[in-house]
Amino acid sequence: MDPIVEAALRKWPHVPHCWGWLALDARGDWYMRDERVQAAGPFPQVKGSRITHDKLREFIHRNYLHDGAGAWFFQNGPQRVYVELEAAPFVWRVGPDFAVQAHTGEATEARAAWLDEHGRLFLDTALGFGLVHTLDMGHAAEAVEAGRWQPQALVFAEMPARFGYVLAPRPA
Rank of each mutant, 00 (worst) to 15 (best):
G147C: 11
Q152I: 07
F156A: 12
L131A: 04
E35A: 13
E86F: 13
G77C: 13
L131Q: 08
E6I: 15
R120C: 11
A110M: 03
Q152K: 10
W149K: 03
Q150G: 08
W72Q: 03
V91H: 03
D124S: 04
K47M: 07
A39L: 11
E117F: 11
Y31P: 04
A39P: 05
D25P: 12
F156L: 06
A161S: 08
G48L: 10
F43W: 13
D25V: 13
A40W: 01
M1P: 10
D67C: 02
P169R: 12
L135M: 01
R170F: 06
A71I: 05
D124F: 00
R50H: 00
Q152C: 07
G70E: 03
G119C: 08
A40I: 02
Y31D: 01
L22Q: 12
A168R: 15
F73V: 05
L127K: 07
Q45G: 09
L135T: 02
P96V: 08
Y165G: 02
G48E: 06
V46T: 12
L167I: 14
E145M: 07
R93L: 01
P96S: 09
Q79I: 15
V5Y: 12
L115Y: 14
W114R: 03
V37Y: 01
N76D: 15
Q150P: 05
L22M: 14
V144A: 11
I4M: 06
T134S: 09
W30I: 02
T108I: 02
T52I: 07
W149A: 04
T52Q: 12
G41Q: 04
A71L: 05
Q101P: 03
D116L: 10
T108H: 00
T125D: 00
H133L: 04
V155I: 13
R57A: 06
D54V: 13
L121D: 07
E109I: 08
H14N: 15
A39C: 07
E142L: 11
P78L: 13
V132L: 09
P3I: 02
Q75G: 13
F59M: 11
R36Q: 14
Q45V: 12
